[in-house]
Write a protein that binds this DNA or RNA. Structure first.
Lengths: 340, 340
DNA sequence: TTGTAGGCGTTATCAG
DNA sequence: CTGATAACGCCTACAA
């Protein structure tokens, strides 16, 4: 394959100037005689001409691409989020560069570097919790950053779109309390993440409000990666006092937690009530179907892209936005009144 | 926010020429006095200087971004594929622009247009089956296209990375035949996709080889989207003769199919043996755990990115490659000898 | 309606 | 070792 045709080749071949070709390329920039346009288009077709995005971006300072930094596409929650973000982005004519951190701050740091070099206009990210200065720097460099699902409290100037984590945990806890449970355990994400902290807070306040003492051994903050969920369940079930109900507020560990429960001799919901965060394709397929807190992923995606896009176009006033959407609680058969 | 610092700013500020700065940037290009280097690095840090990827790409003809066109991120198979592709791409220092088609040829067509404008170097895609000319044109424009998971036979010049679909279906079928089943049903993807066709072919040839007649009503090719899987199961179970075993070779419809089976009065595997295509996080969580054909997603991703990258670097001879990797069959408890 | 020319930020080629 | 300077492909005033 010979070297690609440039705008100049097209111009020469069509017997016009590059300016004209440029105009037909992004029509609206200036006037072009219909007949001339036709000829130019024909030549572009014939030469299989393709404008170089690099040259274009270099020239016109702006970009139509945003970065999407997700923790882990293996988690259905993030996968669906990615799906919706791509969808919303397409509706606005912008492109999405996808990066993953695998929950690893080092990889996240690399991703941020990449994003800086790529000179994307905006970034939508689920931060690991580390790299505080780095995120700050990215934002300071003029990149519009939007945190979604999680946030970093030390960075109050960055837009945030999350569900009401605290409230969601309260609702889930209230549900179990109302059923009559008092020995409720909670498995959450790491303390380094806003979701991990907020959900525990919600759990505590619901318990407190109900006048039920919290057994500290019943609160387990575990990493997103690895099999920490299984271990947490084992530890909870092997203690001197066993919980009668369990909330898993760590979406990435629901699978491992459930798996371990299934391996135990306990049956749901007779011996243990279970409520998990995040609804996904299989929560209804297992037996019994799981009671869940369903995150409105569409809304998260919509608002994040909206923010990213608005900032890109400058059609939004300064000052960080914090958008909070409510999650739904869906009761299914994995939670019931305690039998003991 | 002031405008970003350029290489020239750094040069001026450090009292050197841009050439020197460029050299320290990509060290190895030329000699730089240690002392000078230090000073330049310091200035770069101070000015928060970041090289512009666009300018760099413009200068050195190459692009470091590839397009990834997936059918549906909601399907765990594609989500995991995306995860691995991003991972492999990162390892090679290239970026991934993500697009989805939702199995819709129109959206796919749009995506191809986007890809043309973006001037990505390579594209990894799971084609819907339509847009044959359009894919051809993209390839002709000099974009290295790699089809993964599915292929389009009319485009033999395009690289392909798939699992051995025919063989996988045969293995699954043989498994059931060996257990003693003869009334085996098969739900596959649409006839318009290579996977849909190949898996049915494999199913047929296994049946034929075993000398078992195929009941045509037992073969259902259904769309990836919608609830076609449920309907197919209903239709299979309500017929005059009921199958004793079912293979679902349509990864997107496994969920719906299983759900419908659960709603029926049949219990697995006593009344019906079930084997599904694609292993994923929940196949082992449902009861009974499902026998599956596991696709080696890592390998699919590795080879596709490898091809995309090699073509980008020109470090590979002409002529389309067709890479075929074997899938694993994993027996679990959803398949057993027929009880009738 | 069309053409000319300068510049976007880097890298690379030569002279110093 | 370092410094000018010419590309790279495109857009966009400003002229014609």
């Amino acid at each position: 394959m010979r070297k690609a045709a440039t705008i100049r080749d097209v111009a020469r071949e069509a017997g016009v100037s590059v300016a004209v070709v440029s105009r037909v390329l992004n029509d609206g920039t200036g006037p072009v005689a219909p007949h001339t346009r036709e000829r130019v288009v024909a030549v572009m077709e014939r030469l299989a001409y393709r404008p170089r995005a690099a040259a274009r971006e270099l020239q016109q300072q702006s970009t139509t691409t945003i970065g999407l930094v997700l923790a882990d596409l293996t988690n259905p929650f993030f996968a669906r989020l990615a799906d919706r973000v791509v969808w919303e982005a397409r509706a606005r004519g912008i492109h999405v560069v996808l990066l993953t951190t695998q929950e690893d701050p080092h990889l996240e740091s690399d991703s941020i570097d990449t994003l800086i070099e790529r000179s994307v206009g905006s970034v939508i990210a689920t931060p690991t919790g580390g790299n505080v200065e780095k995120w700050a720097r990215l934002a300071q460099l003029g990149v519009n950053v939007v945190f979604v699902d999680r946030e970093i409290e030390e960075l109050p100037d960055i837009d945030v779109v999350t569900i009401s984590n605290e409230l969601s945990a309260e609702v889930a806890t209230d549900h179990l309390l109302r059923l009559g449970h008092t020995r409720i355990a909670f498995i959450s994400g790491p303390e380094t993440t806003s979701t991990g902290r907020a959900r525990v807070t919600g759990f505590r306040s619901a318990m407190h409000r109900a006048g039920v003492a919290v057994d500290e051994r019943f609160i387990q903050s575990v990493p997103f990666r690895g099999t920490s969920g299984s271990d947490a369940v084992s530890s909870l079930l092997s203690g001197p006092i066993r919980p009668t109900a369990l909330i898993v507020g760590n979406t990435a560990q629901v699978r491992n937690a459930l798996s371990r429960v299934q391996q135990s001799s306990l049956s749901l919901p007779q011996d243990l009530s279970l409520v998990v965060f995040d609804d996904n394709p299989w929560t209804e397929l297992v037996s019994p179907p799981l009671s869940v807190v369903r995150q409105p992923i569409d809304m998260l995606a919509l608002h994040s892209v909206d923010l990213a896009y608005s900032r890109l176009k400058g059609s939004i006033s300064d000052g960080a936005r914090r958008i909070r959407v409510d999650a739904d609680f869906i009761q299914r058969s994995s939670s019931a009144a305690p039998t003991t």
